[in-house]
Design a protein around this nucleic acid. Structure first.
Lengths: 199, 199, 199, 199
DNA sequence: AATGAATGAGGGTTCATTCAT
DNA sequence: GATGAATGAACCCTCATTCAT
């Protein structure tokens, strides 16, 4: 990678970082391209060398952040040695919830962007294609000896459940803080899993 | 209510209707106050006699629509004679899902606004205060003879689950159409209920 | 016409005048909407209340100026009492050439916009519809007793000839000043008329 | 001419060709230097090695195209053996009109650039200086035995007439297609010639 | 000579808001 | 209360031009 390419990648990263900060602070609508380039310390025209508009940037950033969060969880999982299916699911869920609890900026940012379709349709750039989550989950199911009716429906159900509850509990502490609610979230997920499991 | 007040109320209603249509078609961000007043057939200045800005109008409109949808479901319930707890819950859920399926405009509109906090914090105007949903649910639980650990957590869990799954299934048909997914949603809710139920 | 309408017409006129001056000085391309509103002393947004863009304004302005010039010539003609066909044609031509000689700004402005299609296709606003030049010419021909083969071709030929020659002679004094060239222009037109005339 | 010079000339030619295509399609104003270099397949900076700006390129391109068109006509004439003056004039005129009819891109491009001053003032590069049209016309007149009062006025008159009428007839078919109008154009020119001829 | 990433001035356009009528 | 013409700040985006490579 030549000096120029290196420099390009750096500019792009600076723009991503600046935008992430601003989107989190002011929201997508109130953040302007001027804001972003000012914060990034580049000229306005430079923005358009990398992104079509702020929505383009946002979309790519969401894909990055969501995927990054899940990658973290799986990497942490690989360092554990869990054989039990339910423990594994809870580990992943709790890891993601912990990340969201630790970083409200991230929480706010991925809310409403952490959905099943993010994993199945997101246009990931090359650096992220390493992690194909649906495939990983399939492999993971094969390794355990448990069988589910429509496992993709189950995962969809669980993910949508987490997204909504995590945001309310962490951000608004509504109807309770995550600490208080978490046991019930676990229970609910257990209930869901038991319904999908086959004999 | 005098003629003048009547006329006022009419202008306000026209603005609500026009805005609802436009917000649904173009989204909040791309809808301008000009669009709204043009569609409503009133002068620009008139808008400011009723609302502070378009976000004010939007907030009030969401409260109206969401509450209206739930009112519909409870009214339909009162015309039935269901004694079984689970049947009652499913009736309400399916009624709301049907409303959303029948009216994509409504679906789009309430998405991200149909959450537990809508019921507990929403600023409702006088005409809506008649319906206090958390209280209704409490009454409803007392009437049945089943007992739950933290019933408010259970309802919260169910509502958040429905919001996310309904939007994806109805709007994007992702991961499947609601018709195909609904049995599994019911199953999942059964699983959740069973976990919260006390002996 | 109320105070408001009066004011509106005035704003529009101010914009026309400012634009005419600027288009003539800097050309259409180099004149910006900012230039126009600054010169007119109105806000930028006001421009868009009256015109779609600068090309819209330009088009309307050309129609005004060209038609105005021809109206002047016909009005002057009506104050004369010319019976001879050729004298009438020369009177009109010379009158128009005089206007262009007297006002280089106008000359520059109508150049390449003074063509047969301007008269047949121009979208004229109501104030100008009074003057339907092709019809006036028809009437004029009927009154005289001379007959031409394809008179519309003849007028087209003459107009295109004048447009090109007038611009070069008046503006660039090329190949000669109008004073020197005019007798030859008259001759050329006589030659053209004689060719179109029927026995 | 060395390899390097050859390569240079090639780049320049590529830029000319790309620009010609683009100017014709989108017009001078809407064509950007980016467009040109993209179409030509060279880097942006390269443009500035050959031209000062797009107007510079345009000016040179017009001179090329207009002169080329006239050269074609004279070369075709040299292959004929016409002695009659009027036939010669008509041959040249019709040849040029045919070129314009066959190539609307060219028509559009030379319109407003095909005027007397193009021949007398155009900055021609070396390759074109071979053709000095005013001188050629003089020679041509001497060869015939006809005498005209101010022949340069006559040619000027004829050229300006053709420019305006050809564009309208060919491009807009206004007031008629060139096929229909051409006999009358010939007539008009005959009329003009007869007026300038000396006994 | 050739490149093309970076620049940033400045264009067009929108639109919430005001205020005289 | 109701109007809608007028405003002008602030947005998005373009593109001629530069310059390190």
């Amino acid at each position: 990678m030549g000096k120029v390419d290196n420099n390009k990648k750096q500019k792009e990263t600076t723009l991503y970082n600046a935008a992430y900060e601003l989107f989190s602070q002011k929201g997508l609508t109130k953040t302007t391209i001027s804001d972003i380039v000012n914060a990034a310390g580049v000229a306005k025209g430079t923005f358009y060398l990398y992104f079509h508009d702020k929505y383009d940037l946002h979309e790519k950033l969401v894909a990055q952040k969501v995927t990054g969060m899940v990658i973290n969880a799986f990497q942490a999982l690989s360092r554990k040695d869990l054989n039990n299916f339910e423990d594994t699911v809870f580990f992943l869920i709790d890891h993601i919830i912990s990340q969201l609890e630790a970083d409200h900026v991230l929480l706010n940012f991925v809310y409403h962007n952490l959905s099943w379709s993010t994993f199945t349709q997101t246009i990931l750039d090359d650096s992220m294609r390493q992690l194909d989550i649906p495939t990983q989950l399939d492999t993971f199911l094969l390794q355990s000896n448990i069988h589910f009716e429509h496992p993709e429906f189950m995962f969809f159900t669980i993910i949508e459940l987490i997204e909504g509850t995590a945001y309310n509990c962490i951000y608004y502490q509504q109807p309770a803080a995550m600490e208080a609610y978490r046991p019930y979230l676990h229970k609910a997920i257990l209930g869901i899993i038991s319904q999908f499991q086959i004999s």
